[in-house]
Design a binder for these strands. Structure first.
Ligand SMILES: [Mn+2]
Ligand SMILES: [Mn+2]
Ligand SMILES: [Zn+2]
Ligand SMILES: [Zn+2]
Lengths: 144, 144
DNA sequence: GTTCTAATGCAAATAATTTGCATTAGCTAT
DNA sequence: ATAGCTAATGCAAATTATTTGCATTAGAAC
């Protein structure tokens, strides 16, 4: 619960509540996107008595304020959340262990531009997820 | 219900049922991916008395047999289904009217290859959706 | 037509998320 | 510090999309 978390909340007109700061802190520390349930359980495990709907509401709020981003990964049960680096990124998802790696390189180049010209659409953005098997999982990828 | 639909079903060991053929036919004719609910309602409207769970089960089956593909588009209520062209494609989604256009060009080039080498992952595939506003919707994009 | 099994209907279960409303706890101004 | 205001929370119930169990029916093969 470093102090700049409360600053970041205050800056966006959000009250600095225990749960809010805690959730943001957890996301900040996590190297992986996490589910609402994960966060909820982790808090209960540490005797932080929070309600599940508070977790959802908090995540929504943090997303609105761009402190957090919400990922919906195909075939993942529910949504995942990660601290928002504000950088454009993509995700590499291991189909074996479900580990998710962020990719900062965007292979689209100026494709959006080209597409805009060709289709006369106003392009707003894109979402690219890559699926595969991580080094540890590729060994067993063709078994069960 | 052209005859080659019953052929396609038979070919994959599926019984040629009225509902199944109908759903596959609807998907084949549609220029847009459609939801299970759409299909269900359209059938009811034409007095084809089908059960909602049958629609879901049918879609699952058709997906398994690669006759249909299932799309989960971010912020779309539920899944959408389209006749499977078996071609690699991406989707351009209008954030205004929710119209979906298929794109046959893939801007990734040999990025998967590069990524495989760099990460030592076994790449299985990718999913790319582009978001924007179609010509009709861009006019009103900045209003309500 | 009989038989066998896959497909269907129906109702109930799930899973993830959202909502309404009463209560509480942060902030702000005294 | 304290009172007052409003946003945040807890709790239980509602929603939405989808799935499942089980009894019944209807294709396909003979
Ligand atoms: Mn990109
Ligand atoms: Mn592609
Ligand atoms: Zn893995
Ligand atoms: Zn549009």
């Amino acid at each position: 619960m470093s102090d700049n978390i409360s600053e970041e909340l205050k800056k966006r007109g959000l009250k600095n509540t225990k749960h809010r700061a805690e959730i943001l802190d957890m996301l900040k520390r996590s190297d992986q996107p996490v589910s609402a349930e994960q966060l909820f359980k982790d808090m209960l495990d540490r005797n932080i008595n929070v309600n599940f709907s508070t977790v959802y509401r908090t995540l929504d709020t943090l997303c609105e304020k761009d402190l957090v981003s919400k990922l919906t990964i195909e075939s993942e049960g529910g949504a995942l959340y990660e601290f928002n680096s504000t950088m454009h990124k993509h995700h590499l998802i291991c189909l074996g262990c479900r580990k998710i790696i962020s990719l900062d390189y965007c292979p689209l180049g100026n494709y959006e531009q080209t597409l805009a010209e060709k289709t006369d659409y106003l392009i707003a953005g894109h979402k690219l997820d890559i699926y595969g098997y991580c080094p540890e999982c590729r060994k067993t990828a063709h078994e069960g």
